[in-house]
Amino acid sequence: MEVRTIKVFTTVDNINLHTQVVDMSMTYGQQFGPTYLDGADVTKIKPHNSHEGKTFYVLPNDDTLRVEAFEYYHTTDPSFLGRYMSALNHTKKWKYPQVNGLTSIKWADNNCYLATALLTLQQIELKFNPPALQDAYYRARAGEAANFCALILAYCNKTVGELGDVRETMSYLFQHANLDSCKRVLNVVCKTCGQQQTTLKGVEAVMYMGTLSYEQFKKGVQIPCTCGKQATKYLVQQESPFVMMSAPPAQYELKHGTFTCASEYTGNYQCGHYKHITSKETLYCIDGALLTKSSEYKGPITDVFYKENSYTTTIK
Rank of each mutant, 00 (worst) to 15 (best):
Q270T: 15
E215V: 07
K191R: 14
R83Q: 00
C227E: 03
C112L: 02
I15K: 15
F242S: 08
V22Y: 00
K280I: 07
K95H: 11
A40T: 15
N157E: 07
Y234S: 08
S279W: 08
Y297M: 04
V188M: 09
P224E: 14
Y36M: 05
T76H: 12
E144Y: 11
I45Y: 11
Q197R: 13
N16F: 05
M26I: 14
T116P: 02
N89T: 08
Y138S: 13
W94M: 01
R167V: 02
T91F: 03
K316C: 14
T199V: 13
L126R: 01
V304W: 04
Y57D: 00
V221R: 04
F9R: 07
D77Q: 03
V8W: 00
M26G: 06
L118C: 02
A136Q: 08
T116Q: 08
L291H: 13
D109R: 06
R139I: 07
H48P: 09
S310C: 11
T314S: 14
A142R: 13
F217M: 13
A117M: 12
K183C: 08
K54C: 14
S246Q: 02
P130G: 00
K95T: 15
R184I: 10
T103D: 08
H276D: 06
S79C: 02
A289W: 02
D63M: 09
S263F: 05
K183H: 13
G267E: 15
N89P: 07
T199C: 12
C149M: 06
A289I: 03
L121A: 07
D13V: 00
D180F: 09
I15A: 13
K255V: 10
K298A: 12
P249R: 07
K7T: 12
S171C: 14
R167I: 03
A250E: 10
V99A: 05
L88V: 06
A142I: 10
G288P: 04
V8F: 00
S25Q: 06
V99R: 03
A108T: 14
T116W: 01
P300T: 11
G53A: 12
T226I: 12
T5M: 07
Y57C: 07
G257S: 09
T211L: 12
Y28P: 00
Y155G: 03
L212P: 06
D23R: 11
D13R: 03
A247H: 06
G33S: 00
Y155C: 02
T302R: 04
F217C: 05
D62W: 02
Q31Y: 13
S86R: 13
V21F: 12
Q30V: 12
E2F: 11
F56R: 00
T64G: 11
N147A: 12
I223Y: 13
I277A: 03
K298I: 15
T312P: 09
K307M: 07
Y155A: 00
L17N: 14
Q31C: 12
T169C: 11
G82V: 11
V243C: 07
T199P: 05
T75D: 05
Y172F: 11
G29Y: 08
T226S: 14
M24W: 12
A87L: 07
L65T: 10
A231P: 04
V304C: 06
I223S: 14
N157A: 05
I124D: 01
T192W: 10
S181F: 11
C261L: 07
P249E: 08
S50R: 15
T199S: 09
Y297P: 04
T232L: 13
N49V: 14
F56Y: 02
S263Y: 03
A145R: 00
L126Q: 01
M245V: 12
K44F: 14
Y36C: 02
E162H: 07
H90P: 00
L126H: 02
L200M: 09
A136V: 01
C182A: 09
Q230S: 12
T169N: 00
T314C: 10
G33W: 01
D287F: 00
L163K: 14
S25L: 15
R66K: 09
Y138A: 15
Q134D: 05
E308D: 09
E239Q: 11
H48I: 12
G39H: 09
Y214R: 05
N110P: 00
K95V: 14
S171R: 13
N49D: 09
M245H: 00
K233G: 11
V67P: 08
Y306K: 05
S50D: 14
N187L: 11
H74E: 09
M24Q: 09
Q237L: 12
L186S: 08
G143N: 00
A154Q: 07
V58G: 00
L163G: 15
K255S: 07
A132D: 00
K298W: 09
I286E: 08
V67S: 14
F32R: 00
C149G: 03
E253Y: 08
T91E: 01
N14V: 05
E2S: 13
Q197A: 11
T5G: 12
K293L: 09
C149E: 00
Y155I: 04
A177I: 09
R139N: 13
D287Q: 06
H90M: 11
I223T: 13
F305K: 08
W94S: 01
T11N: 04
Q175W: 02
L37F: 12
A262L: 04
A262V: 04
T76Q: 12
T198R: 13
A154P: 02
E308N: 08
F32A: 02
E239D: 11
T91C: 09
N187S: 12
R184M: 11
K280M: 13
I124P: 02
A140V: 10
Q237E: 12
V3I: 14
Q31L: 15
S171M: 12
F242P: 05
T91R: 00
K183R: 10
T198G: 04
S104G: 08
P131C: 01
T282K: 13
F9K: 10
N268S: 09
P249N: 09
Y72S: 11
L88S: 01
Y265A: 08
L235P: 05
V21A: 12
G39E: 09
A231V: 07
S79L: 14
A132C: 08
T116E: 12
T266D: 12
Q270A: 06
Q175N: 04
A177C: 15
L235I: 14
N129S: 12
L179V: 06
T292S: 11
K280W: 09
F148Q: 00
T103S: 04
C225V: 02
A250G: 12
T55I: 11
V304S: 04
Y137I: 07
T19W: 13
M24S: 13
Y155P: 01
Y113V: 04
N111G: 02
A132L: 01
V160R: 02
G210S: 08
G202Q: 02
L121K: 02
N61H: 10
